[in-house]
């Protein structure tokens, strides 16, 4: 499998925050999700991946190159949508397309206008009259219209209504499935992005605390609902989080295949049963456990 992006030990210190040794591998044609609470370092990491901010420490190769000695075409091949896109407020949407066109070697004006139509953004409107969600859509339309092979999107669903969010998720999945486009998204809430992300990275306090494929997460992480005293103490002690209730407890295991044997008797007798663990449940266990 081709690797589109390879980041090793990316580190950056700010006065009040540090990104500490973030590593990440992104396969061609995949959708990677970077999740984490507010101020976990997601935007810092994404700006580095997109070449918007230098990498003081660690190595980063994107599309086979490093930004330090990249050819001028590298940024053409990347579509970056910042968390808070900035535009010329007094200019129209259309003006921004004319402004963007000469910057990108493979600018596709027709595609841009089709996207605006899909997103229901009026090209003649001034940016200052757009809602927050529409600004995000404009930023996405720009990123999708210059033949980028790698899309790096910071909170792409923020501010979007359910219809636009769904259509964006479908579009991202379709782009990745077509094989030539790779998508990296970051979000502080799972918000449907967990449905399309095949590889999950979880950032917390500037560190990568979890890197797993979505398939492995589904195999390894389960809620065990059990009658108190019905399961092995050793298993109980290894739960990533436990919610004790007077009428039965819930324990979250991050290594289900390893405890399957030990749980088998309780599962067979009905003293325990399994429940699906959502990405949100899993991520919360890291935040609360830390």
């Amino acid at each position: 499998m081709d690797t589109v992006l390879e980041a090793t030990d990316l580190t950056k210190h700010y006065e009040d925050f540090s990104l500490r040794g973030a590593s990440l591998t992104v396969r061609k044609g995949s959708v990677s999700g970077i999740f984490g609470p507010n101020a976990a370092g997601k935007s810092t990491l994404l700006r580095m991946l997109a070449g918007q901010t230098p990498v003081p420490d660690g190595t980063l190769r994107v599309l086979g190159q490093s930004y330090a000695d990249a050819d001028r075409d590298l940024k053409n091949r990347i579509g970056y949508v910042p968390q808070e896109p900035v535009f010329y407020e007094n200019r129209t949407v259309e003006w921004h397309a004319r402004f963007a066109a000469p910057c990108f070697a493979r600018w596709d004006g027709a595609a841009f206008h089709r996207l605006l139509e899909d997103f229901r953004v009026n090209p003649l409107k001034k940016v200052k009259h757009l809602s927050g969600g529409q600004k995000k859509l404009l930023s996405l339309a720009l990123a999708f219209s210059h033949g980028a092979e790698l899309l790096i999107l910071d909170e792409p669903t923020a501010g979007l209504d359910i219809v636009h969010r769904r259509s964006l998720l479908d579009r991202l999945r379709a782009l990745a499935n077509a094989g030539d486009t790779t998508v990296v998204v970051a979000s502080h809430i799972t918000d449907g992005l967990d449905e399309i992300a095949e590889d999950i990275t979880f950032l917390h306090d500037g560190r990568v605390v979890l890197r797993e494929s979505a398939d492995d997460l589904a195999t390894n992480w389960k809620w065990v609902i059990y009658k108190d005293g019905s399961i092995d103490r050793a298993v109980e002690e290894r739960f990533a989080s436990v919610r004790r209730q007077p009428f039965g407890s819930r324990g979250l295991t991050g290594d289900f295949p390893a405890v399957r044997e030990a749980l088998a008797p309780a599962l067979a007798s009905g003293d325990a049963r399994l429940d699906h663990a959502s990405l949100e449940d899993i991520l919360l266990s890291f935040i609360k456990g830390a």
Partner: peptide, 10 residues
């Protein structure tokens, strides 16, 4: 008594 609710249960 053993009652635990699941939000994902249909």
């Amino acid at each position: 008594m053993f009652v635990v609710l699941s939000p994902t249960h249909p």
